[in-house]
């Protein structure tokens, strides 16, 4: 059962086309990786799916939970349980993490026990009394982003580089937090990453590669990950240019 389907998606910001052609799907109970070089359009894709008003869908459709949400407002999408963790989260001066966390938790009926479990899991005690993200380190920001999103008990999350700049120990924490989210009702996720380290801690099934605004290949998560680490994106472009390619098939054909 497909939880999220994006078909022939084309996205613009201002006058610029930032996603040219993206077709992909995420099944229920599936975590899918999205690779791609800098500026290839991954964050833009994430924002378009979230419904960020700046990112306009020029072409294509987004189907979530069997519903066409292409023209739905961001507020409604979030209400359906669709959200994203941001690659760069903002500073909120004058609002403590604790304050904001309580506000989110109470609106989503997240119990105190569940919340404290997440605080424990992500080792956030020291940050609770501080203003959200103000002076937080890169890794702390990533943990906080995961934490606040987890409090929403989302059904589907686009994780925009949750592993960038995160040390190996914190990476394990983030992996565990995602597993905890699954326990709390997360039905699927798209994980944007450059490194795929997180794959060690979570069970990603498939992966896509986006280059220059286009999804150019797709396949088994391990296979794609290994391929990228071995050959880089260049090989990816060379071999799969122009079409979405099923890597498994390509491999099968080769052997």
């Amino acid at each position: 059962m497909h939880l999220l389907i994006c078909k022939d998606l084309k996205v613009s910001v201002g006058t610029k086309i930032v996603v040219k052609d993206a077709t992909f799907y995420v099944n229920e109970n599936e975590l899918v990786l999205l690779y791609g070089p800098n500026a290839s359009g991954k964050t833009s894709l994430a924002m378009a799916i979230l419904g960020h008003p700046k990112y306009k869908i020029v072409n294509g459709r987004i189907i979530f939970d069997g519903r066409d949400i292409t023209n739905m407002s961001m507020e409604k999408r979030v209400k359906l349980g669709l959200t994203a963790t941001f690659q760069f989260s903002p500073d909120l001066r004058g609002i403590t993490l604790e304050e904001l966390a309580f506000e989110i938790a109470s609106r989503y009926g997240m119990s105190q026990d569940q919340m404290f479990k997440l605080i424990e899991l992500l080792k956030l005690h020291e940050l609770l009394k501080r203003d959200v993200n103000v002076g937080f380190s890169g890794g702390e920001r990533k943990r906080v982003e995961l934490f606040l999103t987890a409090l929403q008990k989302p059904r589907f999350v686009i994780f925009d580089e949750p592993d960038s700049g995160v040390d190996p120990e914190s990476l394990a924490l983030i992996g565990r937090a995602i597993s905890e989210m699954v326990k709390n009702g997360l039905k699927g996720g798209l994980i944007i990453t450059h490194v795929g380290y997180l794959a060690k801690y979570i069970n990603a099934t498939r992966a896509y590669v986006m280059i220059d605004g286009t999804m150019i290949c797709h396949g088994d998560a391990d296979l794609i990950s290994n391929h990228i680490f071995r050959y880089g994106f260049k090989m990816c472009i060379k071999r799969f240019k122009g079409e979405i390619y099923e890597l498994e098939e390509w491999n099968k054909r080769k052997s």
């Binding site: 979230l50 960020h52 008003p53 903002p90 989110i104």
Partner: peptide
């Protein structure tokens, strides 16, 4: 910041 908070529900 508004968009980010809206993503938080």
């Amino acid at each position: 910041k508004i968009i980010w908070l809206m993503a938080r529900g």
